[in-house]
């Protein structure tokens, strides 16, 4: 790593003033230090958020939903039995998210804001589009782990976060605070729409700090489940993941969300499949029909067409699990 200065502010306001270009935030550091060691991030100053009080732990208040501090370590969320009763999908999504060490160091805020794992992006020898270059090297390169849909900007990265699809399926939001004030955006809108051709993965602005994840009451009324395919049995980034959630009454699904991870640059809603099962009781034939609507507009690269049947099968299993079949 190249030398840099280091600040550990005690408040959000102080941190916000220190943040900026060349001066990024660090929390658990499990992603950022990797980028710095690889020469992809070369900060002049790190702003360590870990000294800010009040951003760890979670609470649930009647009518106000669930509020999780952004600095809460992932393992604390995974192992919390009370949280698993309020929002069981979090434990499911974290089970294979990373090693125990990484889950003890990494935070929920950092998990959502981690950068993509594309090997061309992470190799400083490749001046790819996302890093300011002119082309995507995965488009005609090694594309096993890359996107099959939503690649309008020509960038074939995928979202690696396990929590992002799970939280989108429950309509979760994030609070973004800065010296100028606080705004709330949906987790879905935290990710940059590829169609906008912005060379950024997230919509958080310079000087802003992700302080909380909030799951509104309506999101908590849904039953949710997370399914993940990996290329080995122990923890790994997903080949494809699926978060599905719905209000379930007498086997009938309402407010259905089906969100795919690791298939697109953003958590990807399978809208046609959602509509196909909305208001229905799902049996195996119904789940299979709905799953066949998933990724119909996908355009796979050389090595990643396998993601399409994989996503469909995970959706089928997730829907059956939701319906209790």
């Amino acid at each position: 790593m190249k030398p840099f200065a280091y600040a550990r502010p005690a408040t959000v306001a102080e941190a916000s003033r220190l943040l900026g270009r060349g001066s990024p935030a660090i929390a658990g550091g499990t992603d950022l230090l990797g980028l710095m060691k690889g020469g992809i991030a070369v900060p002049e100053r790190l702003v360590d958020l870990s000294g800010i009080e009040g951003l760890r732990g979670w609470s649930r208040e009647r009518g106000a939903g669930l509020r999780i501090g952004a600095l809460t370590p992932l393992v604390d969320l995974e192992e919390d039995d009370r949280l698993a009763r309020s929002l069981p999908i979090v434990r499911e999504a974290l089970a294979d998210a990373a090693t125990l060490q990484l889950k003890g160091m990494g935070t929920i805020g950092g998990n959502l804001l981690q950068r993509n794992r594309c090997w061309y992006f992470r190799d400083e020898a490749f001046p790819c589009w996302l890093k300011g270059g002119i082309r995507c090297f995965a488009a005609d390169g090694e594309s096993h782990y890359h996107a099959v849909v939503g690649t309008d900007a020509g960038c074939n990265r995928v979202t690696p976060s396990d929590l992002a699809p799970a939280l989108v399926a429950h309509d979760a939001q994030v609070r973004l605070a800065s010296a100028r004030g606080t705004r709330t955006v949906s987790v879905a809108d935290l990710f940059t729409d590829p169609a906008l051709h912005r060379r950024e993965e997230h919509t958080i602005r310079p000087g802003e700090i992700l302080t909380h994840v909030v799951v509104p009451e309506a999101g908590l009324q849904r039953r949710g489940t997370y399914r993940k395919a990996m290329d080995r049995k122990a923890w790994s980034f997903a080949l494809v993941s699926v978060a599905a959630a719905a209000r379930v009454r007498e086997g009938r699904l309402r407010d259905v969300r089906i969100v795919l991870g690791s298939v697109a640059p953003i958590p990807w809603r399978a809208l046609e499949a959602e509509q196909a099962v909305e208001g229905t009781t799902v049996d195996d034939a119904q789940a299979r029909r709905a799953s066949e609507l998933v990724l119909r507009d996908a355009v796979p690269l050389k090595d990643n067409a396998y993601k399409i049947p994989l996503a469909r099968e995970l959706v089928r299993r997730a829907l059956l699990r939701l319906a209790g079949a």
Binding site: Y6, R8, I26, G29, T30, L33, G34, L46, D48, S50, P73, V75, L100, Q101, L102, G104, M105
Partner: peptide
């Protein structure tokens, strides 16, 4: 490189000493 930091198993190669 695993050590315990405040009792938690931690990758010391991915932890800044100043932190």
């Amino acid at each position: 490189c695993t050590v315990l930091v405040d009792g938690r198993p931690t990758y010391s190669c991915m932890t800044l000493a100043v932190a």
